[in-house]
Design a protein around this nucleic acid. Structure first.
Lengths: 190, 190
DNA sequence: ATTGATCTACCTACTAGTAGGAAGACAAAA
DNA sequence: TTTTGTCTTCCTACTAGTAGGTAGATCAAT
């Protein structure tokens, strides 16, 4: 076996969350897609809240690892931002993951089980902090010209990324993501 | 009677959509909030899809009227953008309408009844077109310095606004909206 | 012999939606 | 003026289907 049932369940659940959010899928949907009975999913994840907690934990952990990997493999801050944006551009263009799980769930914040909401918030904080650190490094190196503090610029950039995902989806135009986000990177350059 | 039952239903449904999206509320929720039986809601809106269609139609119509009013009452393009952003800033700060209905629904695009999805898309197009027209007017008057075409700059600004709403919600920080969106207006000024 | 994973079968609560009737408003007809 | 009919709104009572979740059995692997 190369992929456990739990992982299959999480993979399917994640794609369902990306498509329709927390209230947009059911155990029956997962059951059908994975090919096991509903009750068997409860064996792996007793409640939907626990399933979502594990799912978001896994997602945010992977995101942290991904950002760390960019930091390790790409030398300059500009390249790091480009790598981050290129990752999402690819995910959206090939429809493999056309939306951020946490951005999706952020819209439903008020209806989420508290532990899940906390994980979503933590992901936003973590992503903003990473962007801020990259922006600061770039500014210190004289590569970026920042109008505001790195933290404020990071919040602005993160919002643009999530908003670009939303626009691409609303207008059914995957290419729009890059069109919106590309110039944001350009204008940072000193 | 100063507000019809239909309007009450739409008002409640709208606040529920803003809180949790299309799949985040039920006729039972509306019933409880309005104080009439479930079946009576079906009298006014036979199906949920029809309810949502009327709701989004009303929302987008009001939005168009609001943008038109800004154009009529505020003379300069910079002031028009400021008025638009100030409107949302107020809505978010006083929590009267902490999210755009269509931005909320855009996340669930794939699960929406087709007629509703079309209305959501139309609202995005309409808002982007208004922003583009204001940006163009400002650029022609020498008030704004645009790096890209007005249409591209409009897409960027719209994404920032929606992303700022999402960040404010995810981080539980209403003030974040203005912090993100304010500098975007600043940097346009020639 | 026990454990983990799966199954069938089921539960309760809730989903959108329907059938049919009661109460009032209003206007036309007696 | 009263009566009749129609329209609107809301109701109780219901349906079929789905939600998340549980109980208990089977079976293969340890």
């Amino acid at each position: 076996m190369e992929q456990t049932t739990s992982e299959k369940i999480l993979d399917i659940a994640q794609s369902l969350v990306i498509a329709g959010g927390y209230n947009g899928f059911s155990y029956a949907d997962i059951s059908e897609a994975v090919g096991i009975r509903k009750a068997s999913i409860h064996h792996h994840f007793p409640t939907k809240a626990e399933l979502m907690q594990v799912l978001v934990e896994r997602y945010t952990q992977r995101a942290r690892a991904g950002l760390k990997a960019i930091g390790a493999h790409v030398p300059d801050p500009a390249g790091q931002l480009r790598a981050y944006l290129a990752y999402w551009e690819k995910c959206i263009l090939d429809a493999s993951q056309p939306f951020c799980v946490c951005a999706m769930l952020a819209g439903e914040m008020q209806m989420l089980p508290a532990p899940v909401a906390l994980l979503v918030q933590a992901h936003f904080e973590n992503l903003a902090a990473w962007l801020a650190s990259v922006l600061k490094a770039g500014a210190d190196a004289g590569l970026f010209r920042l109008d505001k503090t790195p933290e404020e610029e990071a919040d602005m950039l993160m919002a643009c990324v999530h908003g670009a995902m939303l626009s691409a989806r609303a207008l059914g135009n995957p290419g729009l993501f890059a069109a919106i986000v590309g110039p944001q990177l350009e204008r940072l350059k000193a």
